[in-house]
Amino acid sequence: MTLAERIQASVLGALPGAEVTVQDMTGGGDHFQVIVLSPAFKGKTLIEQHQMVHASLGPLKDEIHALAIKTRAV
């Protein structure tokens, strides 16, 4: 399982039913963008949504050098 796949699984684990897209921005395997669409974001500010995504990564955070996050409440 690639790191991108592990990121997707980790976010989905914490946000079941979310639509999660992970892109490797440089091909180097440590700069990622993750796009998360989830009903769980409804009523949450952008910062709260991003904090939820950060929290869903758990220990994976240490393997990721740069992470751009895009979230939408759906």
């Binding site: 500010t45 952008l46 910062i47 991003h50 751009a68 996050i69």
Partner: peptide, 12 residues
């Protein structure tokens, strides 16, 4: 109150 980092501030 924290509103965010560079990405969030730019998006807002």
């Amino acid at each position: 109150k924290l509103i965010g980092g560079c990405d969030i501030v730019s998006e807002m």
